[in-house]
């Protein structure tokens, strides 16, 4: 499979699913639905399918070479996901400090002491500004 095909094929499948979904939108009876709720999705779905067919069938343009370090990418994305899950469990303060420290290490920083200090500082100041002064409701968790 030539590079770039994977995305085209995936999006093609998604577009077909979208198109089928559009076909299933029923138009309620009556005059007010002169153009029903399914018309635009149908047009968009058809457009997507045609566009992806065009992209898939046209001659290869020689995609630009980007070497991706999958391990690093997946790892930092996974840590972010864990953070989002923990956010609701342990609360904003308790989740954010370790997250910023660990994530910046994954993104290449080696000065963990500095990162820890910075993450405590920004987390605390954001918390003070938004939760205490402005009264936004941050995820409370254990320490909320």
């Amino acid at each position: 499979m030539r590079p770039g095909r994977g995305l085209t094929v995936t999006l093609f499948v998604v577009s077909v699913v979208y198109l089928l979904g559009a076909l299933r939108i029923s138009t309620p009876e009556g005059q007010y639905a002169a153009v029903g709720p399914g018309a635009f999705p149908l047009a968009i779905g058809l457009g997507l399918v045609c566009c992806l067919l065009w992209m898939g069938l046209r001659p290869d343009r020689g995609p630009r070479v980007v070497v991706v370090d999958w391990r690093a990418g997946v790892l930092s994305a996974a840590v972010f996901l864990i953070y989002l899950i923990l956010l609701d469990v342990v609360g904003y303060l308790a989740a954010t400090v370790p997250f910023v420290t660990i994530e910046s290490r994954l993104l290449g920083s080696r000065a963990w002491r500095r990162d820890l200090i910075v993450s405590v500082a920004i987390t605390a100041s954001v918390y003070a500004l938004f939760q205490l002064v402005l009264g936004f409701r941050l995820p409370p968790g254990l320490f909320g």
């Binding site: 989002l84 910023v100 994530e103 993104l107 290449g108 920083s109 920004i122 954001v126 409701r137 941050l138």
Partner: peptide, 29 residues
């Protein structure tokens, strides 16, 4: 600011901002 630290902080800020839009963790996902 080193990219590593800046981008880690950006993720935290973005999460906070989106959460406050609707007080919803769903939006964050």
């Amino acid at each position: 600011v080193p990219s590593s630290l800046l981008f880690a902080a950006v993720l935290a800020f973005a999460t906070l901002g989106i959460y406050t839009l609707n007080n919803s963790v769903f939006d964050v996902f």
